[in-house]
Design a protein around this nucleic acid. Structure first.
Lengths: 174, 174
DNA sequence: ATAGGCATGTAAACCGTTACATGATTCT
DNA sequence: AGAATCATGTAACGGTTTACATGCCTAT
């Protein structure tokens, strides 16, 4: 939400933001879905938390439009969120893609450091998983293959993410 | 829940089932966490849906123990769940691992077909994603790299899952 | 005439997390 | 004496889904 408002120069209204989440059409529709009900719910919450301020503008022949403007606290929260890589590999599919989408358009330099940081996180995780896999053989008796397979899957997913991040980094520099 | 009861010969009680979810110790603690509150909540729901029947046994010096036994409908629901591959790649990390865990112990032949079916699903998805990526260059004007990157990530994750499934299939045959 | 766009929401149900309550017993 | 184990939950809170409600305007 805050990112979308920032892209619109700091303010916008619900119905317009909702278009970005419409299946296939909007740029975010590809990666997530957000029903109008939830969208308005989040805007209310942002207003409660003072991250946006809401002003109502009457329109003739149309329902009143509520314009939500990002506040200084909102910009800080957004900046904090944008510079923080995600901790778990499964969050890359959603959280990280969103961060990347906004960082690229708001601040290309930030996008580069974000990708670099995320790569570090993934590489560290991959290393830790590798250590754990090697350590599995230690307890002498029972080689139940399941824990091994669980770690193998996590490693495969994390490596795939790391490789993809490398490609994205190349793309950003080009 | 139903899988755990089946592994215990058809019945069990909450406190005992909870041990399987304890961090690191229980076999499922590695892949998911389930607080006692939620576990009892799920058992209540299963009882409401007639997938288990609950009987209370008093014990001296201990709180009464509630034994939950899987019903015929419960076994059918479990069998249906176990033979169905997951549709989305992100569900492999949790849902599919759980299916695999139970299928292997309850019916090794089922585990093989489950893995085979899941591979088909992943391969189909990978093919579809590849087609979509190729199709992106078609609209002449604007090569915004973002949609391409989104699809690349999905393809990378799906391929990683497919490769892992191939390794698991080899493991099951060995 | 009717379908769709504009613009906002509410309601009900479900899912999940965290923390706490109870109260006896056995281990250290 | 104090901690852990046994065994069951409740309470409070927040997130999410799905469906529906409202009412006017514009285009076909």
């Amino acid at each position: 939400m805050l990112g979308l408002l920032a892209l619109r120069g700091g303010s916008g209204y619900g119905y317009d933001l909702a278009r970005d989440f419409e299946g296939r059409a909007g740029p975010l529709g590809e990666i997530m879905h957000l029903e109008p009900g939830m969208l308005y719910h989040h805007l209310k919450k942002l207003a409660r938390d003072r991250l946006v301020v809401t002003t109502v503008e009457a329109q003739r022949g149309r329902p009143a439009r509520q314009t939500h403007a990002i506040t200084e606290a909102g910009r800080e929260a957004l900046a904090r969120w944008l510079q923080e890589p995600v901790r778990a590999t499964r969050e890359i599919r959603l959280d990280f893609l969103l961060k990347l989408y906004f960082a690229r358009q708001l601040d290309p330099a930030l996008a580069r450091t974000l990708v670099a940081e995320q790569r570090r996180v993934c590489d560290d995780l991959a290393a830790s998983l590798t250590t754990q896999i090697v350590g599995l053989g230690d307890g002498d008796a029972p080689p139940d293959p399941f824990p091994r397979q669980v770690l193998d899957l996590r490693l495969a997913q994390t490596r795939a993410a790391a490789d993809w991040l490398a490609a994205v980094a190349r793309d950003l520099d080009a």
